[in-house]
Deep mutational scan, measured.
Amino acid sequence: ETFPLDVLVNTAAEDLPRGVDPSRKENFLSDEDFKAVFGMTRSAFANLPLWKQQNLKKEKGLF
C-alpha cells in the first residue's frame, strides 16, 4: 500500500495512516514519488550506508 507524499512528510507517528511504520515511511511512497523525493531508485537508496539513508530521510521530512 502506498500513500501520497503529503500524508507522510513531517507527520508524527500517531497521525500516520494505520499500518505505516514511522521508521520506514519511505517504503510507503509510490515508486514515482520515491524517485522524485530522493532522486534515485529504491535499490540505489538501499545500497547507501545507513547513516546516509537516515540523513536523506531527515532532509526530506521522512524521518
Rank of each mutant, 00 (worst) to 15 (best):
M40S: 01
K57F: 04
T2R: 07
L29K: 01
F38C: 01
F38Q: 00
A46P: 00
N10R: 02
D21S: 02
K60L: 10
A13C: 15
P49L: 02
T41Y: 04
A36V: 13
P49R: 01
V7L: 15
R24N: 09
G39W: 04
E14H: 09
F28V: 04
F45Q: 00
F63S: 14
A46L: 11
L29Q: 01
F34P: 00
G19M: 08
A46C: 08
V9M: 11
L48V: 02
M40Q: 04
P22Y: 03
G61K: 05
A36Q: 15
T11D: 07
N27S: 09
P4Q: 08
V9C: 08
R24Q: 10
F38P: 00
L29I: 09
G61L: 06
L48C: 02
F34S: 00
K25W: 05
T11P: 05
K25Y: 04
A13V: 14
Q54H: 11
N10C: 12
D15T: 03
L62N: 03
F28S: 13
K60D: 01
S30F: 01
K58R: 12
P17M: 02
T41R: 05
L16E: 06
V7D: 06
D6E: 14
K35C: 14
N55Y: 12
F63E: 12
P49G: 03
L50H: 09
Q53I: 05
F34N: 00
D31Y: 05
K60P: 01
G61T: 01
E32Q: 12
L62M: 06
F63L: 14
K57L: 08
P17R: 01
L48H: 01
K57M: 05
G61I: 02
V20G: 03
S30E: 03
E1K: 14
Q54Y: 11
D31V: 08
R42L: 07
A36W: 13
M40K: 01
W51P: 08
P4S: 08
K57A: 05
D21T: 04
Q53C: 01
S30M: 05
A13S: 12
N55G: 13
D33M: 04
A12S: 13
P4F: 03
R18L: 15
L62F: 07
L5Y: 14
L56G: 00
G19F: 09
E59Y: 07
P4G: 06
T2Y: 15
L56I: 08
S23E: 15
D33N: 06
G61E: 03
G61S: 04
A44L: 10
K35T: 13
F3D: 02
V9N: 06
L5N: 03
T41V: 09
A44W: 08
D31P: 08
L50E: 13
F45R: 00
S30T: 12
K57E: 05
F63K: 05
V20A: 05
G39A: 11
G19T: 08
V7I: 11
D21P: 02
Q53E: 00
W51S: 11
M40I: 08
V7R: 08
N10F: 07
A12I: 09
L29T: 01
L29N: 01
K57Q: 02
F63M: 13
P22W: 03
G19Y: 07
R24G: 06
A36Y: 13
K52L: 12
L16C: 09
E26I: 02
N10T: 12
V9G: 04
S43V: 13
G19K: 07
P4D: 07
A46K: 13
D31Q: 08
N47R: 12
M40N: 00
Q53R: 11
V20R: 03
Q53A: 05
F63Y: 14
E26G: 01
D33I: 05
D33Q: 05
T41F: 06
R18P: 15
P22K: 06
L16T: 06
L16N: 05
A12G: 10
P49W: 00
L5E: 02
A36H: 12
L29P: 02
L5W: 08
V7M: 14
F45M: 01
A12Y: 07
L62R: 02
V20K: 04
K58E: 11
K52T: 13
K60T: 10
N55M: 14
N27C: 13
E1C: 15
E14C: 13
L29Y: 02
G39P: 00
A36S: 12
L16Y: 15
A13D: 15
T2N: 06
G39Y: 07
K58A: 12
R24D: 04
K35L: 14
P22D: 06
Q54V: 14
K52R: 13
E1V: 15
K58T: 09
S43P: 11
R18N: 15
L48M: 10
F38E: 00
G61D: 06
G61Q: 05
V7G: 05
N27D: 15
R42C: 04
G61M: 05
N55I: 12
S23I: 07
F34W: 03
L62V: 04
E26M: 01
K60V: 15
V7Y: 15
K35N: 14
F28P: 02
K57D: 00
S30I: 05
R24T: 07
A13E: 15
F45W: 09
L29W: 04
P22N: 04
G39K: 13
E59W: 07
L8S: 01
E32N: 09
D33L: 04
L8K: 03
F63T: 13
E1H: 13
N55A: 14
F63N: 12
F45G: 00
T2H: 09
L56F: 06
V7W: 14
R24M: 10
G19H: 09
E1M: 15
G61H: 05
F3Y: 15
S43A: 14
M40E: 00
F38T: 01
A36E: 13
K25T: 08
Q54T: 14
A44S: 10
G39V: 04
R24L: 09
P4V: 03
P4M: 04
Q53L: 00
D21Q: 05
E14T: 08
V9K: 11
F3L: 11
K60W: 06
A44Q: 13
L8F: 03
F34A: 00
R24V: 08
P17I: 03
Q54K: 14
M40D: 00
E32V: 12
D6W: 15
F28M: 04
R42I: 03
V7Q: 09
P4L: 05
A13F: 13
N47I: 13
D6S: 14
V20Q: 05
D21G: 01
D33K: 03
A12K: 13
L16Q: 06
A36F: 13
A46D: 10
F63Q: 14
E1A: 13
S30Y: 02
K25S: 05
E59M: 10
E59C: 08
F45A: 00
G19S: 09
V20T: 06
G61A: 03
A44N: 10
S43W: 11
L48E: 04
A46R: 12
N10S: 09
G19I: 10
R24S: 10
N55F: 10
R42D: 01
G61Y: 03
D33S: 05
F28C: 06
D6C: 11
L50D: 10
D31M: 07
F28Q: 06
K58G: 07
K58N: 08
F63H: 15
T41H: 09
D6R: 08
T11N: 07
K60Q: 10
E14S: 08
L56R: 01
W51Q: 10
R18G: 15
R18K: 15
F38Y: 02
R42T: 04
V20N: 06
S30W: 01
L62H: 03
A13Y: 08
A46F: 11
V20D: 07
R18V: 15
D31F: 05
A44T: 12
L16R: 02
K52V: 12
A44Y: 10
K52E: 14
V20E: 07
T11L: 11
K58Y: 10
D21L: 02
P22I: 07
D21K: 03
G39S: 11
D33R: 01
N55T: 14
L48Q: 06
V37L: 11
R18Q: 15
L5Q: 04
N55C: 13
D31H: 09
S43L: 13
F3S: 02
L62I: 05
G19C: 13
L48P: 00
E26Q: 04
Q54L: 11
K58P: 01
F34I: 02
T2E: 04
D21V: 03
G19W: 09
A12C: 14
Q53P: 00
V37E: 03
G39M: 11
A46E: 10
N10W: 08
K35I: 14
F38R: 00
A36T: 12
A36M: 14
Q53T: 01
R42F: 06
R42V: 06
N47V: 11
F34L: 02
R24I: 07
F3I: 07
N47E: 13
R18H: 15
R24E: 05
M40W: 02
R42M: 06
R42A: 06
E1T: 13
T41E: 14
T11W: 09
F38G: 00
Q54C: 10
W51M: 10
L29A: 01
P22T: 06
N55W: 12
A12T: 07
E1Y: 14
F45L: 01
